[in-house]
């Protein structure tokens, strides 16, 4: 199973905010795993969707070189349940950014109606113990970003587009030259 809990980006303002969507489908096995008789989207996986949205928003600031992880979930509230056929919208906005992480506020819409909110704390892993730690293979990471159509909508606050970082393109070229010569 792919650990992708967002389907695509709809808005992305570098260093500020992002909006993604997730369509809930009965084809997803985790719905049965969570509650077989009355399937609905597990709220923890909505948090993961917000975390992926916010983590990519934070990672982009460093051209996706920083190792970003969800470090902590503050308050979280869910007013409704999302069922197969529903569309979830995840909005993330940074409240504070420091060199070692960020605080974000996430809101969730269910078919454009408020569903819940979550406070998230992201950390960037730095220090010698993490220097050789790769959270993702760069070419796979770029493929994921392309699949989520992040670069289709990503903009800086002045409206200029966010380009794909050269180091990710280089990794993709290197992968393709070996696997698809």
């Amino acid at each position: 199973m792919r650990w992708f809990w967002i389907d695509r980006f709809e808005e992305f303002v570098s260093g500020e905010s992002a909006r993604t969507v997730k369509n809930v489908s009965l084809a997803e096995e985790h719905l049965d795993d969570y509650n077989q008789t009355w399937p609905y989207m597990p709220p923890p996986l909505m948090i993961e969707g917000l975390a992926q949205t916010g983590g990519l928003l934070l990672g982009q600031i460093s051209d996706f070189r920083a190792r970003v992880v969800l470090a902590k979930v503050g308050r979280a509230s869910f007013e409704k349940l999302a069922r197969p056929g529903d569309r979830l919208t995840y909005d993330i906005r940074f409240l504070s950014q420091q060199v070692d992480g960020a605080i974000a506020e996430g809101t969730i819409l269910l078919n454009d109606e408020p569903l819940g909110m979550v406070e998230l704390v992201f950390a960037t892993l730095s220090g010698p113990e993490f220097e050789k730690v790769e959270l993702f293979q760069p070419h796979e990471f770029l493929r994921m970003l392309r699949s989520m159509r992040l670069f289709d909508v990503a903009r800086y606050s002045d409206g200029s587009p966010v380009a794909i970082p050269e180091h990710l393109l280089a990794a993709e070229r290197a992968f393709l030259s070996v696997n698809c010569p």
């Binding site: 470090a71 902590k72 503050g74 409240l95 504070s96 420091q98 070692d100 605080i103 704390v121 950390a123």
Partner: peptide, 13 residues
């Protein structure tokens, strides 16, 4: 350690 990021934000606010 990560809590201090949160604490600093809340104190600032």
């Amino acid at each position: 350690s990560i809590d201090f990021l949160d604490i600093v934000y809340r104190l600032e606010k």
